[in-house]
Design a protein around this nucleic acid. Structure first.
Lengths: 340, 340
DNA sequence: ATGAAAGCGCTAACAA
DNA sequence: TTGTTAGCGCTTTCAT
């Protein structure tokens, strides 16, 4: 019970009748080794099924980093974030880095827990979807010059410098709402996500801007906030439907809430887009198979992940590089749910 | 540039004017330390913003494991697997373990890469959705007494003993097909997933069993295999629709393929379930919002993850424990896509 | 209650 | 080309 393959360089060295240094050299190709000696070492290693301990390597080595990228997202069940994860992973894997993804579940304590675990494990750097702007730990980490890239959301902390990759949320929202307006809608409700998120703030700005540009005034009862989950969409939609004067269109700011919204509308037998038109933020694989097919602002999740990983890799190879903010543009995918 | 907070026990010891041993004792509460000394150490540590290096701890310490669970899934973008991940994570977090999830993307080389990375990092153990049955590396790892739990798929290797948590796939498939038969269908097509997966094999068995029990013979042209992705569903459906004699019902074995299937059916204007009925394996958050709402076999993804994590934790605390196989039962969720 | 010192498994000078 | 040796940062005897 538990031999657990704990052979060391020394065991291999002994079996191959060489020094530990030679074993190390063979494994790392860090210096010329005689072909035959090399063979002997490899055979010995194979016989013992030897695996170098990365823990020891890391403790000793000058290359302090682990070739492991930590990715912390806020909701792994949300396909938008799994798309990001895929993007990160593809780039990382191409560069022989492993990605370890952790799910903070929008919970600050969990985020902290994972951040600390990953630092303790000495990951090379982080790609992070921060839970909220104001995070002391993250500030510390960044000030400690730990390589960090924020993705999807910005870290709105005073004068701090971080790489970031985000989407032009304001523009995306603006286009969605503009579309609705041009279709003749005036009473346009918005279901916002968590209030403190930069994405929520920006999308809401797009909404306000569009209304303003078209001389439509904001109506309090049409501006809702929910929890970015399906449940939140259902609840908000119910609330909207109870209004004396219902909205003629709903702009839902996140994929899962949109699903909830659609469900509730269908449940209550509302005709979409006849009675109420619907546009969502975030286009999903199933959007076109929905009833009705959903008009949505498509965010390039995969590309977000790719860019973030590339950015992190660049910083890793050049730590003194200036930080940069990459902003990707979303796109409005028009389908039946908003009419035409 | 790059101070990177590399303070060590020694720095703290110096500042607090104690020995490194004392610092260690304070941090690990591993022995009585004078209250005042302890205070001094803590202050010194805070001042330097000292974080013990887990790498060094692990190299030295007797507790060899890291409180990190490695989870390797085959498709992180598939919500079924993210549900599993959530289950694993919740249990792990409750027990102060971190989860690092890796995505093998159904690729053996990638699976190997991650397996080795995680072992090298000395994770406490694995929860694994194996890419295919026959995997030498995994056999080795298990034989090395590394704690492993297989989830969703079994590792059909000869005499090896592993903990596993799976779904009763045969039963689930049987019920789906039986339902179709009872609704009067005789020409029932099946779109299988990757041929070598245990899940595919078992679901196909359920299909065959049901047909046999109701005296319906197997028809080759109605038995298709695809790649478990949306694209595969589209392709297979096209193929089915080109048949001289079309099936009257389709049983699609995986969520993403079902989506593809539905899309293609809708694209070609097929009436569901009028012309062709559809049942899928795997119920998803969006299933009820589809057009038409989808009848599906619901797999308890979250519970799968929970059970797997619990099993792993048990093995960790008692390595000589007998292995066990947990089988969870699926459930047929009836909606409009199969008629009634 | 505290300190000194050994050593975990490995790599990188420095020698030979 | 190969070996010897000194640590990496920490925990853990063994002394004191």
């Amino acid at each position: 019970m538990g031999k657990k393959n704990n052979y060391t360089v020394e065991d291999v060295a002994k079996l191959a009748e060489v020094s530990t240094a030679t074993v190390s050299r063979v494994f790392n190709k860090s210096a010329k080794v005689n072909e035959q000696t090399s063979q002997r070492v490899l055979e010995a290693a194979k016989e013992l099924n030897y695996r170098p301990s990365r823990v020891a390597q890391r403790l000793r080595g000058k290359r302090k980093h682990s070739m492991i990228i930590g990715l912390i997202v806020t909701d792994l069940e949300n396909p938008f974030f799994s798309e990001i994860a895929r993007g990160v992973e593809d780039i990382a894997y191409q560069n022989k880095n492993a990605v370890m993804v952790c799910n903070s579940n929008e919970d600050k304590a969990k985020e902290k827990f994972y951040l600390e675990a990953l630092i303790a494990e000495q990951v090379s750097g982080f790609i992070l979807v921060p839970t909220t702007h104001n995070n002391k730990l993250i500030t510390e980490i960044i000030n400690d010059e730990y390589p960090v890239v924020c993705v999807d959301r910005k870290l709105n902390i005073g004068d701090i410098n971080v790489d970031s990759v985000t989407v032009n949320n304001k523009q995306g929202a603006y286009r969605a709402v503009e579309r609705l307006i041009k279709l003749g809608h005036q009473r346009i409700a918005i279901i916002n996500g968590l209030e403190e998120l930069s994405t929520t703030v920006e999308r809401f700005e797009g909404y306000k801007q569009a209304l303003e540009d078209y001389d439509i005034s904001l109506v309090d009862e049409l501006i809702l906030y929910a929890d970015s989950r399906e449940e939140g969409g259902i609840k908000s939609t119910k609330q909207l439907l109870e209004l004396k004067e219902r909205p003629t269109a709903i702009f839902s700011i996140n994929n899962l809430m949109t699903l909830g919204c659609l469900e509730e509308l269908n449940t209550q037998g509302i005709n979409i887009p006849g009675e109420i038109a619907l546009i969502g933020f975030d286009d999903m694989p199933w959007s076109k198979a929905l009833n009705p097919p959903l008009t949505a602002v498509r965010q390039p999740g995969y590309e977000l992940g790719v860019s973030a990983a590339e950015l992190l890799l660049k910083r890793l190879s050049n730590p003194s590089r200036n930080t940069s903010d990459i902003v990707l543009n979303p796109e409005l995918i028009v389908r039946a749910s908003c009419g035409n």
